[in-house]
Design a binder for these strands. Structure first.
Lengths: 144, 144
DNA sequence: TATAAATAGGATAATTTTATCCGAAATAAA
DNA sequence: TTTATTTCGGATAAAATTATCCTATTTATA
């Protein structure tokens, strides 16, 4: 469904959100441990999320990655997915046609509409605050 | 969403179904032209579908790929997807956790349930006959 | 100002996916 | 039985994704 990079990006963002809520910056090493991902690769993904203004980084000693507290509830999964995988997953054609729409649909166009609308809606209405809350309360998990 | 191989596999199966309904066998060359895919790669995918008993092949002169007429309405998209991509797309964890279920859910487990159920249901209820019909009547398209 | 601790970023490697090529085996028909 | 046609299968290659390593740059603090 999502690329590995995107999976790591989502989990990393949740972990950063949790820590930012408590005023703590985190490093790629810490993140990678917590979400069970390769450190250097995760660092690259974090850099991409910074460039796309999803998260912030502070260089130098006592630096790390963070998210402005007030932004946490406004960052939607869709922003993270878009930043890493683009919007092809819910806007592209399910069978890879270059142009696929009502006028020139692929064989599964109609059947896919519901699935993709559901996915899009889910990604656009789920924010980091909700996801962070479940992790903090032990309801959901970032690894294993 | 699906791999390229799976996209080709689905489109190829539809084209084979259409031709089998008219008692015609088709070659990888013909299929690749019709669905706009690389010929040799498509041939490999067809071989895989044969091994998994989704389609049939006849070797030698006047041979080619075909599907038993009576099977066309019974072959579901899910069989093709399963044969090529496996069932990870609707059974695996959305964030790649090795074990993710109600007792140990990933952060998006609940939110994904609907999307994946929708996808699974769609794949399991869509058969090749329906899809072939739309192509034949010019309602949907296999390429461009 | 020097030092230590961080992210940034380039180079490279490993793995997976996608794609190509070619000879072997099968088979219908001449 | 020969020939032409066709799938099968192995070997490679190309491209994309995933992963690692090393150095440069930034920055707080001693």
């Amino acid at each position: 469904m999502f690329s590995k990079a995107c999976e790591y990006g989502i989990k990393a963002s949740i972990f950063i959100a949790i820590n930012s809520q408590e005023g703590r910056r985190v490093s790629p090493r810490e993140i990678a441990e917590e979400i069970n991902s390769p450190k250097a690769f995760t660092a690259k993904i974090l850099q991409a999320l910074v460039r796309q203004n999803v998260i912030k980084s502070v260089q130098g000693a006592y630096g790390g990655f963070e998210i402005d507290k007030k932004d946490i509830q406004n960052i939607k999964l869709s922003q993270i997915v878009n930043a890493i995988d683009g919007d092809n997953i819910y806007n592209g054609c399910g069978l890879g046609l270059h142009s696929c729409d009502e006028n020139h649909p692929c064989p599964v166009h109609d059947k896919f509409i519901k699935v993709r609308a559901e996915l899009k809606q889910m990604l656009e209405t789920t924010n980091l605050e909700q996801l962070a809350l479940d992790i903090k309360s032990g309801v959901s998990f970032l690894k294993v």
